[in-house]
Design a protein around this nucleic acid. Structure first.
Length: 266
DNA sequence: AATTTAGTCAACCGCGATTCC
DNA sequence: GGGAATCGCGGTTGACTAAAT
């Protein structure tokens, strides 16, 4: 349901993400955070642009992201917020935990827009009844407060009880990884090229181990050396090593594309 | 059964905002 | 203060599927 992968004139990959790419991006961000989207793909061993990585992470790979199966409550919230804020999808998304702005935008155009057009009255009534519900909760909450009961109900939209079954190939990947420990990322046998993956993993280790010598992480889980604004004295040495190994990785990628990548074009 | 149309949604693109130097 | 780099948002595109003809 998405553009077939291709390489642009700059050698950057575009189009659908493969499972292998997802895993690379996920494991890199889980380990180091997204300290610089533009540079990140290079260090994660991806031939993607930073924007593409950012989008993929925000919409699909980051933990807790929810897909499909909007609850009525969520839909009412979207309608209400859209009425108040207009097309401020990111602001709307901020009120719906686990939903990305892109997802909400799509859902709005696909379902809610025509719903509100077709049946503005019913939609309004539903919203009003939702307000009534909230009002009841408010009263209950006040009573609870008065009785000095500490646990207060959340006013955020309730999360649906379970994620829908994943359907697309790209979505499949994160089932196995969401709770993966940060160290020793589990490079699950995602394809038949286990040997190549092992090789790639060792390259990947090179990318990552370089930055964790002191094992110091700050808030966003990226190495302190990054936070201090660069690669310090060893940068040029590092770059040389990086270049050669990066070439190797690209060769591996090319080999894989030819032999394995289901999205291969050309 | 074959073809067309409509719906869906992942991903791309352009641009304004923000941050950095 | 100003230019460059980067980020983040919102609109749009394109490929796929299902329904309709």
């Amino acid at each position: 349901m998405v553009r077939a992968p291709f390489y642009d004139k700059n050698g950057l990959k575009k189009g659908a993400w493969s499972v292998v790419e997802d895993n690379k991006l996920r494991s890199y961000i889980q380990r180091f955070g997204h300290w610089n989207w533009r540079e990140l793909p290079k260090f994660a061993g991806l031939s993607r642009c930073g924007k593409s990585c950012r989008l993929r992470w925000l919409n699909y790979l980051q933990p807790d992201v929810k897909r499909g199966n909007y609850t009525e409550e969520e839909e009412l919230m979207i309608i209400k917020l859209h009425e108040e804020l207009g097309n401020k999808w990111s602001m709307i998304a901020a009120s719906l935990p686990g939903r990305s702005d892109n997802d909400i935008k799509n859902h709005w155009h696909a379902h809610l827009k025509k719903c509100t057009k077709k049946n503005p009255t019913i939609t309004k009534m539903k919203m009003l009844s939702n307000e009534a519900y909230k009002h009841d909760v408010d009263i209950a909450r006040k009573t609870e407060k008065d009785n000095s009961i500490s646990s207060s109900p959340s006013y955020q939209v309730q999360e649906s009880s379970q994620l829908p079954l994943e359907t697309s190939s790209s979505e499949f990947s994160h089932l196995s990884f969401d709770n993966a420990p940060l160290s020793g990322i589990n490079w699950i046998a995602e394809d038949s090229l286990a040997t190549l993956e092992t090789l790639e993993q060792s390259f990947s280790d090179f990318w990552t181990e370089t930055f964790v010598l002191d094992n110091t992480y700050i808030q966003n889980n990226y190495p302190e050396s990054f936070a201090n604004g660069g690669f310090s004295a060893s940068q040029s040495c590092y770059n040389e090593g990086v270049d050669s190994i990066y070439k190797e990785m690209q060769e591996v990628e090319n080999y894989k594309r030819i032999n394995e990548d289901p999205y291969l074009v050309n």
